[in-house]
Simulated scan of single mutants.
Amino acid sequence: MSKSLVEFKRFLAKSAPTLSEHEKKLANLMLGGSTKSRRSGRPEAGEGKSWRN
């Protein structure tokens, strides 16, 4: 994991209580995650599929 990513995650951990829902969603997108797929455990449309298929 790159140093900047580690620092960003540390910053989010410290500031999480004060972030708005919009800021939390944006941070999640920046980290490459999706709250929907994590909650349901199912991949979202297009995840896990090759673009060549």
Rank of each mutant, 00 (worst) to 15 (best):
K3S: 09
K3V: 03
K3P: 00
K3T: 10
K3H: 11
S4A: 14
L5F: 09
L5D: 11
V6C: 02
V6F: 05
E7G: 01
E7K: 07
E7D: 15
F8N: 04
F8K: 15
F8L: 12
F8E: 05
K9D: 01
K9Y: 03
K9F: 03
R10W: 01
R10A: 11
R10D: 11
F11G: 02
F11Y: 12
F11W: 13
F11A: 08
L12N: 04
L12S: 02
A13C: 02
A13P: 02
A13N: 08
K14F: 09
S15F: 04
A16W: 15
A16F: 14
P17A: 06
L19F: 10
L19V: 01
S20P: 03
S20T: 08
S20K: 09
S20R: 04
E21N: 07
E21D: 13
E21M: 12
E21Q: 12
E21K: 13
E21Y: 03
E23R: 02
E23Y: 00
K24F: 01
K24M: 06
K25P: 00
K25H: 05
K25I: 07
L26T: 14
A27N: 11
A27G: 13
N28I: 15
N28Q: 14
N28M: 15
N28F: 13
N28P: 00
N28V: 15
N28G: 09
L29D: 08
M30R: 08
M30L: 14
M30A: 09
L31S: 11
L31D: 10
L31P: 04
G32P: 04
G33T: 15
S34K: 07
S34H: 09
T35G: 01
T35F: 06
T35P: 00
T35M: 12
K36N: 06
K36E: 12
K36T: 06
R38P: 00
R38I: 12
R39S: 14
R39I: 14
S40W: 03
S40I: 10
S40H: 09
S40E: 12
G41E: 04
G41K: 13
G41C: 12
G41H: 12
G41M: 11
R42G: 01
R42S: 08
R42T: 10
P43A: 05
E44A: 08
A45M: 04
A45S: 10
G46E: 10
E47H: 03
E47V: 10
G48W: 03
G48L: 01
S50R: 10
S50H: 08
S50Y: 05
W51C: 01
W51K: 15
R52C: 04
R52P: 01
